[in-house]
Amino acid sequence: MEMDLLQHFDAYVAAEKKIEPKDWMPDAYRKTLVRQISQHAHSEIVGMLPEGNWISRAPSLKRKAILMAKVQDEAGHGLYLYSACETLGVERDDLIADLHSGKAKYSSIFNYPTLTWADMGAIGWLVDGAAIMNQVPLCKCSYGPYARAMVRVCKEESFHQRQGFQIMLTLANGTEEQKAMAQDALNRWWWPSLMMFGPPDDNSPNSAQSMAWNIKRFSNDELRQKFVDLTVPQAELLGLTLPDPDLTWNEETGHYDFGEIDWSEFQRVISGHGPCNKERLETRRNAWDNGAWVREAAQAHAEKRAARRDAAGETAAA
């Protein structure tokens, strides 16, 4: 019986059909989705912090408004994703507890510090650029609620990368100091951005199953290559230098060859030893803990009000 269901499921998904919340699904499929969607949601939420760091110091009122709207979008995206995840039978508060306890992971890129205003440009251009590349295929993912959340996210994200590139462009065409600021940000964010696509294909344990289930549509290395190919000309347009001496155009493959990624750094950051891991988690935990009394108050008020309404109703009926 279970075997039949599984075969039926695999064939159904292979035919590009969507799975909806109450449909039967293999336990492993459900768990994979919960892990991936919640990680994705956590990344949006933790991802608010590095950029939120510059809201108070944005150099013009227009930039301040754009940055606030952008970071706010990330909160929205986190919310769409938690909401998709909850259709799988988990509670958002429990997912958040897993984030706060360190059990759940989030994108390691957000464990790097934002040191100058140019980092707002580099993050929008590179980090959002890499994220979009990862996310667009997810709009066709086999799980309906996730795919629909991603459609919403991708639609809203299109302005994020543009605003980042525009910041870089302004800096690159600005004073000598601004140009140096932009180059420095690019130097710091380039390699971590390439790591966002995850470990190389020959070392990516969950990939094959996720591809078979149409949760993942392209391999890590495929997406990474696509990102490099798209980004190199953009860097040239900015007049900035990518910090990779091995970066060359390969006539034969029609792609850019690039240098070795330092996977030991990736492992280090993922396992909690990046420059800001502790700080980011602590900030999230504080926000949550400091808000406990507010959440309790709203709940208590809602209950009191409902009780008062019931009492009034009964009096009226009597």
Binding site: F9, Y12, E20, K22, D23, W24, R30, K31, D93
Partner: peptide, 16 residues
């Protein structure tokens, strides 16, 4: 797809 059997998840549901 056929329906789901109620699937117990290995996630802690805290009573809060």
């Amino acid at each position: 797809m056929p329906p789901a059997k109620p699937l117990p998840l290995n996630f802690s549901v805290v009573d809060k």
